[in-house]
Write a protein that binds this DNA or RNA. Structure first.
Length: 338
RNA sequence: CUAUGGGUUAUU
C-alpha cells in the first residue's frame, strides 16, 4: 500500500493528476494517506471543489481523516473562500484545543479564516498561538487584513511583528507594500522600502516589482520610475505596474511610450499590458483608438483576447455613452460574457 | 527518504 501511495504521489508531483487518479482508482487498498495524497493533488492543481468532494468521498468509504487531511482540505477552503466548509472542518478536528496551538495547524486555520474574510476569528486563533508565532503565521494574518480592505490593520500587524523580533521575509515585505498601496501610505511605503534596501532585497525581482507597483499605486510615478531604473533585471512584470500607473492617472501618451520603450528593449507586452492600455483608453474616452489596440493585440503580438479584454472594450463604450455598441460587443463576444 | 502551513502587476 505504501508503494501504491508513493506512485500516486509521484504522479501528483510530476503534475499528472489524471495519471495519479488512474493509479489511485486501481489500488487494491486505500488508506488515509492514499486519499490525502489525492486530495492534495487536486488542491495543488487548483481543483479545490474536487478536493473537497474527494474528502467527502473518503468519509463515505469509511476512512477517517487525520490532521494532515484536514490541513490540506482547509487549504482548499481558503482558496475558494468556502467559509462554511472550513468552519465544519475546524469543528471536526479531534483534540481541537491541542491542535489549535500547533503552529502548522494554527497557521492553516488562521489562513483559512483570514482568506474567507472572518478576520475576528483569524485574529482570535492568532492570539492563541502566543509564543510560537513565526514569520509565516504573521504573514498570513497581515495578508488577511490587507486583502480585505484593512490596510491600516495590516500595517499595524506588520509593525508589531517587527517589535516582537520576528524578521520579515520577502513575502511579508510584499504584503506590507501592498497594504501601503491599498491606503496610499507613501511614507510608510518609503520606510519599508528603506528596510528592504538595507537588507539588499531589491535584487529580488518580486520585491522590486512590488516596490514599483506600490509607488505607482500611491501615484508617486517619479519614485516608481526611480525604483524601476535601479532594478537589476526588468521583465514585463516590472513594466506593467509603471504602465498601469500612468494609465490610471490618464497619461495615455506616457503609457503608450512606455509600451514602445519596453518593446524596444526586447520585452513583449503580455495580456496584462493590454488591459492597462485599454483601461487608459477608457479613462480618456478614446473608444476609437481602443479598437486599434485591441486588434494589434492578436495581429502584432499573438495574444488571444481574454474575457478581461472584451470586458474592457465594453467598459470603454459604456463610459463614452455608446451603449448600443457596448451591447453589440457583448452579443458578438467569442467567449461567454460574465 | 508515501501525504500537511504564507507570495507580486491589470478591467468592472
Amino acid at each position: 500500500i505504501a508503494v501504491g501511495n508513493a506512485v500516486v504521489d509521484m504522479y501528483v508531483k510530476c503534475g499528472s493528476l489524471a495519471a495519479a487518479r488512474e493509479v489511485f482508482d486501481i489500488l487494491r487498498e486505500r488508506d488515509v494517506i492514499s486519499w490525502t495524497t489525492l486530495i492534495t493533488g487536486y488542491l495543488e492543481h487548483g481543483c479545490c471543489e474536487a478536493a473537497l468532494e474527494c474528502f467527502e468521498q473518503m468519509r463515505l468509504e469509511g476512512i477517517h481523516p487525520n490532521i494532515v487531511t484536514i490541513i490540506s482540505s482547509l487549504n482548499s477552503c481558503s482558496n475558494i473562500g468556502a467559509t462554511e466548509k472550513g468552519r465544519i472542518l475546524h469543528a471536526q478536528i479531534e483534540d481541537k484545543e491541542y491542535f489549535e496551538k500547533d503552529l502548522v495547524v494554527g497557521t492553516a486555520l488562521v489562513n483559512m479564516y483570514a482568506k474567507c474574510g472572518s478576520l475576528a476569528m483569524a485574529q482570535k486563533l492568532f492570539d492563541n498561538l502566543k509564543e510560537t508565532r513565526d514569520v509565516i503565521l504573521w504573514t498570513a494574518m497581515i495578508e488577511g487584513y490587507m486583502d480585505h480592505g484593512y490596510g491600516e490593520a495590516a500595517l499595524k500587524c506588520f509593525t508589531r511583528m517587527q517589535l516582537e523580533g520576528v524578521p520579515p521575509d520577502m513575502f511579508t515585505f510584499v504584503c506590507g507594500l501592498k497594504a501601503c498601496s491599498s491606503i496610499g501610505a507613501t511614507e510608510k511605503g518609503q520606510e519599508i522600502h528603506a528596510e528592504i534596501e538595507r537588507l539588499g532585497m531589491t535584487v529580488n525581482s518580486l520585491v522590486g516589482n512590488t516596490l514599483v507597483d506600490m509607488y505607482a499605486k500611491c501615484d508617486q510615478l517619479i519614485l516608481a520610475r526611480q525604483v524601476f531604473d535601479k532594478l537589476p533585471t526588468r521583465d514585463v512584470d516590472s513594466w506593467n505596474p509603471l504602465i498601469a500607473g500612468h494609465a490610471n492617472v490618464g497619461d495615455i501618451g506616457d503609457a503608450l511610450h512606455l509600451v514602445e520603450n519596453m518593446c524596444r528593449e526586447g520585452i513583449m507586452p503580455d495580456p496584462v499590458t493590454f488591459v492597462c492600455v485599454l483601461s487608459a483608453c477608457g479613462h480618456t474616452g478614446m473608444s476609437e483608438k481602443s479598437h486599434t489596440y485591441f486588434e494589434a493585440m492578436s495581429k502584432d503580438f499573438g495574444i488571444v483576447p481574454a474575457l478581461v479584454h472584451h470586458n474592457s472594450m465594453v467598459d470603454i463604450h459604456c463610459r463614452t455613452g455608446q451603449l448600443d455598441k457596448a451591447r453589440v460587443l457583448i452579443q458578438k463576444m467569442p467567449l461567454s460574457p460574465d
